[in-house]
Amino acid sequence: MRTVLSALLFTSFISSGAYAQEIVWVQVEAEPTLSGAQDRVRVYAGRLENVNGYYLGSGWYGIALGPYTPQDAETVLRDLRNAGVIPQDSFIADGSRFQQQFWPVGVGAPTTAQPIPGSDAARDTATADQDAEVADVIAPEVEPNPIPAPDETLGEARASEAQLDREAKQQLQIALKWAGFYDAAIDGAFGRGTRAAMSAWQDSRNVEVTGVLTTQQRADLLNDYNAVLDGMNLQTLRDDATGIEISIPTGVVEFAEYEPPFARFDPIGDIDARVLLISQEGDQTRLFGLYEILQTLAIIPAEGARNRADRAFEINGMDNKIASYTFARLENGQ
């Protein structure tokens, strides 16, 4: 009998005492789905200024305030913590993990230091903005963006979808799940849950909501998903020593050494990523014990989603230094 564990750890160390650039952010939250992050960022934007959202990598989406000078960021962090407006574990981030922007929608996030909300500089900026609004009061209304015509009719979309095999349908479900629109089984069956996810994705893209993706929409969804993997050079690895077959990001890690029951892969570039493979004999009791033990390790942060089933578990962990993913299962029905 064999218990198999794979852990993919992305690590980025940040020093709060020294900053390598002139602007920083106050990161207040990270969410494991885009839809969850969008819901939370709207809450913050409704009560705070300078709210931004960025994809952080590894399936996580961050919400940050700023940018500010390092000194102003410390002030904002302290004041908002004391006021109970942001979580106590909020921290100063240098922005090195920020990738695609998802908030604000339709405009670029600021790239220069912003004044502290409520300060004289902020009031001067607000006054200037109000003066500009008064000057433009007679400006004509801008029509909202019309919903573009789809590349296929609903009938054509259904016909092209019918040509997909089960693997292609599963890939679409995986991409929808990654984007935060789907949370059911990856089974290649387009039932009510998948149709609802497709509708939600279409609505987020300001296209006609039909619940059936056109050929171009399927391509756009998969392109978004695959863009995250660019440069990772994912390759399926069969490790005979541990008995594990897994996709490894060979573009950022390489095999380092065996240290039974571990096979360790260390970083080879600028991304401080590591992979640990573990294989050992055990049963369900040992699997559950491993689930509890792993959550006490420093390399698996306490924050993040956890899911334990009868024969497998997943642990997502993230803090201001580490983002980790751990998966374990019992093999061969034992």
Results as ranks from 00 to 15, higher is better:
residue 229 L to G: 10
residue 205 R to A: 02
residue 128 A to S: 12
residue 244 I to C: 02
residue 182 Y to K: 04
residue 231 G to Y: 07
residue 239 D to L: 11
residue 131 D to R: 13
residue 190 F to H: 06
residue 206 N to L: 10
residue 146 P to S: 03
residue 263 A to W: 00
residue 153 T to L: 02
residue 134 V to S: 07
residue 257 E to W: 10
residue 130 Q to D: 08
residue 190 F to V: 13
residue 181 F to V: 07
residue 173 Q to S: 07
residue 181 F to R: 04
residue 186 I to W: 08
residue 259 E to M: 08
residue 167 E to L: 11
residue 201 W to L: 01
residue 199 S to M: 09
residue 153 T to F: 06
residue 157 A to P: 02
residue 256 A to E: 06
residue 191 G to W: 04
residue 220 D to V: 06
residue 195 R to P: 00
residue 219 A to W: 13
residue 151 D to N: 15
residue 228 V to L: 06
residue 143 E to D: 12
residue 254 E to C: 06
residue 232 M to D: 10
residue 238 R to H: 10
residue 151 D to C: 04
residue 144 P to R: 12
residue 181 F to I: 04
residue 130 Q to K: 13
residue 153 T to W: 09
residue 199 S to H: 03
residue 187 D to G: 09
residue 209 V to I: 11
residue 131 D to K: 15
residue 157 A to H: 04
residue 151 D to A: 09
residue 175 A to W: 07
residue 216 Q to N: 11
residue 251 G to D: 07
residue 131 D to H: 12
residue 227 A to W: 02
residue 248 I to Q: 01
residue 180 G to E: 03
residue 259 E to A: 07
residue 185 A to C: 06
residue 187 D to P: 01
residue 230 D to K: 14
residue 141 E to Q: 15
residue 165 D to E: 11
residue 221 L to W: 04
residue 189 A to P: 00
residue 246 I to P: 00
residue 137 V to R: 10
residue 202 Q to L: 03
residue 252 V to K: 04
residue 128 A to G: 13
residue 185 A to V: 12
residue 166 R to P: 01
residue 200 A to M: 08
residue 250 T to Q: 06
residue 187 D to S: 10
residue 180 G to W: 01
residue 224 D to I: 05
residue 175 A to R: 01
residue 254 E to S: 15
residue 194 T to V: 10
residue 164 L to P: 01
residue 257 E to T: 14
residue 238 R to S: 10
residue 160 S to Q: 12
residue 129 D to E: 12
residue 226 N to M: 12
residue 149 A to F: 10
residue 139 A to K: 12
residue 233 N to V: 11
residue 155 G to L: 10
residue 179 A to T: 08
residue 144 P to D: 15
residue 169 K to A: 07
residue 231 G to H: 09
residue 141 E to L: 15
residue 216 Q to L: 07
residue 254 E to Q: 14
residue 250 T to A: 05
residue 147 I to G: 06
residue 136 D to Q: 13
residue 210 T to G: 09
residue 205 R to M: 02
residue 154 L to K: 06
